[in-house]
Design a binder for these strands. Sequence first.
DNA 1: ATCTTATGTAAACACTGTTCACATATAAAT
DNA 2: ATTTATATGTGAACAGTGTTTACATAAGAT
Lengths: 211, 211
Amino acid sequence: MFTFNAKNTLMSTQKQRYHHGHLSESLLQAVDDISSQFGIEAVTLRACAKKVGVSPGAAFRHFQDKRALLTAFAARALNQLADTLDAAEEDARETGNDAFYSVGMAYLTFALENPALFRAMWREETIYSKDPDYLAAAKRLVGYLKEGFAGTITDEDPKSFSAHEMLAWSSVHGMANLFVDGPIAAEMKQDQKLELAKSVMGELKNACSQA
Amino acid sequence: MFTFNAKNTLMSTQKQRYHHGHLSESLLQAVDDISSQFGIEAVTLRACAKKVGVSPGAAFRHFQDKRALLTAFAARALNQLADTLDAAEEDARETGNDAFYSVGMAYLTFALENPALFRAMWREETIYSKDPDYLAAAKRLVGYLKEGFAGTITDEDPKSFSAHEMLAWSSVHGMANLFVDGPIAAEMKQDQKLELAKSVMGELKNACSQA
DNA sequence: ATCTTATGTAAACACTGTTCACATATAAAT
DNA sequence: ATTTATATGTGAACAGTGTTTACATAAGAT
């Protein structure tokens, strides 16, 4: 009665279960996959459910809303970016490279390599921007940028943003946005963008390191 | 049989017509109104049609898509921003103020005062970014920023972006984005943002004006 | 006046987010 | 172990969305 071919085995171990097990994480990964492949506008609750192999209603046991799902996804993306920056700083310290430059370029590289994630992080209108997890992730990034990225800058007031700090973050963030969504995006290739970014980072460092 | 009160008069002069007359422009204004009031996620084709007093299908005589409507709206927003920058530069020339500073602040002020428009301009995923009108509007802005905003900068190559030009635009654009959508957005008030922007513009000018 | 073309309406379609009654698995309690 | 409670998933429904289609009406040309 049973045919134990590879496909069936896979089915029985993965799809046959009534309870999924890691549905919330799987749904987040589905958002990642779909948005990375087809853009965030293609992310539909039903498409995510289908991809995970679950009925549309199941998602609501784990997320109050579609918006809540997107919020969790944005928080996840923020943390992934922060992790990347951590790694870049760590690497710079080990290799003795300039941390300011390394972190800035890591920020840009992340945006260029994961445009869908980068966009999703900042979509105020599609997420609950006061969600505690999202706020925590955002705070982590901000804190990092102040201490790590902007660590090489003379910081007058650790509470609010200094002009130097704001200039540093703004220009890197702005460049990322322009490369991803701006009119330059289509006209330049990846390596051209990175080349331009390099020289901008050079100018930026000069501007920020002087008293 | 007829009651000629004010309301009825208004109805007969404005709503009774089978043909609207300026539907495409009215629809764009509806997008403007709704997105400014409730966010761009609330912009629905049907809501726009209802606001204008027309059936849902009517929009398709003027726009191929919802996306086409949003594209036209984005182009309109880009041109409005460019107009604002034009005015700021003109004003600076007349009053003898610094054009670099004036234009930069105008860019930021526009974003802060019209967050919905500013967001709509750059939503690559919800518009046809290769639409000729949109491209023309984008080109106008880019050209302006290169010649006007970045006019005070020593421009080595007028074709591609110099590091100084890119730094200038990126930081202003990035600041605008962070103020509108970033984690700072909620924590600072309008005048605080403008205050911070001022000092950043100061630093930026130093960075860009030196050889 | 008639014919053509532009513009609007109404009803349908598939698809979306969301809810609700019900089914099933897991954990806790007896 | 058996029962009970709780967490998690299903399926059918709902209103709302973008879009198309056949038809109605207005405006312009002949």
